[in-house]
């Protein structure tokens, strides 16, 4: 496999992992909305908390993590960009 192909394989894996995390916080949690709402977090019912704040915060963190790791993958294969803002 060429360098480019290896880079793309790793990029694809990273994308899939990120989308699994995304699917967990956007869908899987709410499959059990009724069941988890009797639990509590910070004093809020859990399903209410997740839809009002928790999942939203998770998405922010997921994207920061995704961007940082993808940058490392790009640099590992020599595809990082030199100029920066």
């Amino acid at each position: 496999m060429s360098n480019k192909e290896k880079h793309w394989e790793k990029t694809k894996m990273h994308m899939i992992v990120t989308l699994c995390l995304w699917a967990f916080f956007s869908m899987v949690v709410f499959l059990f909305g009724y069941e988890i709402n009797s639990m509590s977090f910070l004093g809020y019912p859990l399903a209410y908390y997740m839809t009002a704040q928790g999942s939203l915060l998770a998405f922010v963190l997921i994207i920061f993590w995704f961007a940082n790791k993808q940058e490392k993958i790009d640099e590992e294969f020599g595809f990082g960009e030199k100029e920066d803002d």
Binding site: T18, L19, F25, S26, A52, S55, F59, V60, I62, F66
Partner: peptide
């Protein structure tokens, strides 16, 4: 709320 934020992951 979830829809209008989760889309940014995509």
């Amino acid at each position: 709320l979830v829809g209008w934020t989760g889309g940014y992951v995509l």
